[in-house]
Amino acid sequence: MKKIGIFVLMVIVLLDYSLIGQSVRAEYNNHDYGDSWTVQCLQYSATASPNSAASYTRYGARGYAEQWALNFNSNYKHLSSDCTNFVSQAMHDGGEYPMQFQSPKWYMERHWWGWTWSNSWTVIGDLINFVYAENWGYGYCVSPGYSSSAWYGDIITYDWNGDGIWDHASMETVYNGHDPNSGVYGDLVDQHTTNRKHAIWTLQPYNPNWQTTIYGILHLYY
């Protein structure tokens, strides 16, 4: 009888967790940022101003990225595609941007039954939408060069297949250095998924497809 009771309780807990997860996702996905999508790589319309409620400690974000580039912080869930999770951790833990639990959401949270997080914490396209919605920064396209044009703590975005959807993210941590792995000179980044510390910001020595790759910078205000 006891065993049946425990079993029923576990089923209820699992169902509850599943439903909560669904509602969180549904709520996030239903959020409408209201912006249409157009190519905005060459132009800036200097109409918006930074969100004064949040400030970014970019040296702190950089320090976090340097500390955890090759390891995983147990305060956060480790994901198989961990790149945006990593830059979100650096933005929050080192950069002191606050998590947001009200829409638009940006958080990763541990509960007694497991983890919950917003898509904006773990998916680069959703993080960009969130940063725009909160007016924490803006994005622009770049072409490769020694310098990325990013500041410490800015996010480099990569579109591997050239379809206009960002696939990967890393964090700028060094100006003008040598990638210890490849010997290539330029600005360096730290990243997760394939964990790298001080990789050349273009990641070109690790990416055989030089033809379809597009680069962007998500510049964060301070």
């Binding site: 190519v39 060459l42 800036y44 960009i128 396209c141 044009s149």
Partner: peptide
């Protein structure tokens, strides 16, 4: 299109030599 529509640049960019920012956007875009 890779970015949301609203763009702003209230702060000056890092003026680093060798920067190719916006000198040539990808022909794909």
């Amino acid at each position: 299109s890779p970015w949301p529509q609203r763009q702003s640049s209230p702060y000056p960019e890092k003026n680093a030599s060798g920067t190719n920012k916006n000198e040539g956007v990808s022909p794909l875009l």
